[in-house]
Design a protein around this nucleic acid. Structure first.
Lengths: 323, 323
DNA sequence: CTGAAAGCGCTTACAG
DNA sequence: CTGAAAGCGCTTACAG
């Protein structure tokens, strides 16, 4: 691999001049800068980042932390986040380092060594859980981080998120206005994730605006007796706003099993199911994870240039209903 | 962050001695080594890898390359590969750097800079495509790499894979022996991936052994008229061996649509669908991606210690039928 | 506008 | 068994 020293020697310049030229230091004449850049490009020069990071006490790497547990259907969301993040990192000559493991302990160790080794000073968490030990660790470390999903309360740290109240509202509106539902039920998981609470708020607002009656079902992933009971007790249901596609599809399957021949319209979230696995009664709100990833990376870099404050410390990404 | 120099000063030793002690150099007395290790541990010392890599001309990072295009359902497979890979990398104090992008050009650029910057000297490709430009690039670069999936022909490079002939055989056997199918059809994608060819071989062998008649359907992802025709022409079909879950579920859905009230048993591959999205007639062969990831990383490190040859250059991971 | 020198935190040949 | 010194490839204060 060619070094700055090689360039200097071949161009009859000093190492310092070449370094400054490559970094576009105004103290070097425009002419020299241009010449050096051209030479470097032709020679396919790339700075050795181990050296550069060592001198600058920097790290051209962003640590991307996966949640410990995740469901099969969520993976498309995470991979699209990766796509968005890396899209930005490449431009900045940064590398995307993932921290992923089966237990919280493994991930903590992983993250700790990334920091202590001086290899990572910026992190993106692909989730935002209450009392998450990784978040606590990052808070007291000399690093920057952004979560995907807002903090459970307050604006304690930087994040990207969707407007989940609006996403709940829009999904419900779609059920009522576009699909003609008169009795949409809100189906949530039993986890009580913050985004579920927000989508519920949006649902309630829209249902109220439409003069309809709200109905809520908490659907356990392991036990569907409650769901079955619910379906039998609520003959009127003609639409479902589910907090995610998986929950929606679980309800839908059970519904079809319990009431053969009848239909409900379903709106879920995440665009996480291939079209072929569902049918025309199934809709999804795409949260645009790729854009969320991009945005997360942008915030991280913006905060480096100049400490962000208030509103600048988070970004809300638009969602889109996939008909 | 504490450095080797800090330890040296505080222990009244020289920097060289501390360095050697930490690297367990036998030229340092066991006693000193122990003392240094203990001190370092207590102090939470972690070597600065930028410095270490610079001196050793190494890179404690493995580049993990995602395929450019992938289907929604494949992501669980990739994320599990990541889990397995990182499980090994953590032990070796290596970091997992992902290369992911929307176009081949982006990914090539990504990989090229990783190499030229001296940041990555080992790669794992999460796929193995014929005439893949990334593979060609890695072949002529001074790096090691392992693919997930065997080369299209020969043993040109290191890889991990499943025994897909056996996986095809076992899946078919399961349909016939356990589920009592007499007319299992082999459903493949129109891509002709190498693993599909192998699974077909296994299918044909088993069908032959059972004295049954083989039937093959190539099912396009975009146009299912052929599939529909096929279903109507083949009244006898009572089982499906699909080259992946997605293909299997697509066929199943179409089958149910075309022949309401009738059932077929389906065996797919990859364990990529949540249980709730399918039913008791749907089965999947789990290819154990996490173990594949682990194994890929192991090969990479083994090859560093001592150039692997022949059989050592690949690893076949066992599969398992999820009933 | 350009250069010589020091330093980032490591490792290792050379010396004792 | 231990240490002083050079060097990995960069950047930047200091000097001219």
């Amino acid at each position: 691999m060619i070094t700055i020293r090689d360039i200097a020697k071949q161009m009859g310049l000093s190492v310092s001049t070449v370094s400054r030229a490559l970094n576009d230091n105004p103290r070097i004449s425009q002419k020299t800068r241009d010449q050096v850049h051209e030479f470097a490009n032709k020679a396919g020069y790339q700075p050795n980042y181990n050296a550069r990071n060592l001198t600058n006490k920097e790290a051209n790497s962003v640590g991307v932390v996966f949640p410990v547990n995740n469901r099969v259907v969520d993976n498309i969301f995470y991979v699209n986040l990766l796509r968005g993040i890396n899209n930005q990192l490449s431009k900045k000559n940064y590398v995307l380092s993932v921290a992923i493991g089966d237990t919280t302990e493994t991930v903590i160790e992983n993250v700790t060594s990334m920091i202590k080794r001086g290899q990572v000073k910026k992190f993106i968490l692909l989730y935002s859980h209450l009392n998450d030990p990784i978040i606590r660790l990052l808070e007291k470390s000399p690093v920057d981080f952004v979560t995907v999903g807002k903090p459970t309360h307050g604006d304690s740290w930087m994040y990207v998120d969707n407007d989940n109240v609006k996403a709940g509202y829009d999904g419900t509106k779609f059920l009522i206005d576009e699909l003609g539902c008169q009795h949409p039920v809100f189906v949530e998981s039993t986890n009580g994730w913050p985004y579920e609470v927000d989508r519920l708020t949006g649902y309630l607002t829209m249902v109220d605006e439409a003069g309809l009656r709200p109905v809520i079902l908490s659907s356990s992933e392991t036990d569907n007796t409650e769901t079955i009971e619910f379906i039998h007790e609520h003959d009127e249901i003609d639409g479902v706003l589910a907090t995610d596609d998986y929950t929606g599809l679980r309800f839908y399957s059970e519904y079809r099993r319990q009431r053969p021949g009848r239909e409900v319209e379903v709106v879920g979230y995440n665009a996480s199911l291939p079209r072929e696995l569902t049918n025309e009664h199934f809709h999804s709100v795409d949260l645009n994870p790729k854009e969320m990833g991009r945005s997360a990376a942008r915030i991280l870099f913006a905060n480096e240039t100049k400490q962000l404050t208030g509103e600048q410390r988070h970004n809300i990404i638009a969602h889109e209903i996939m008909v």
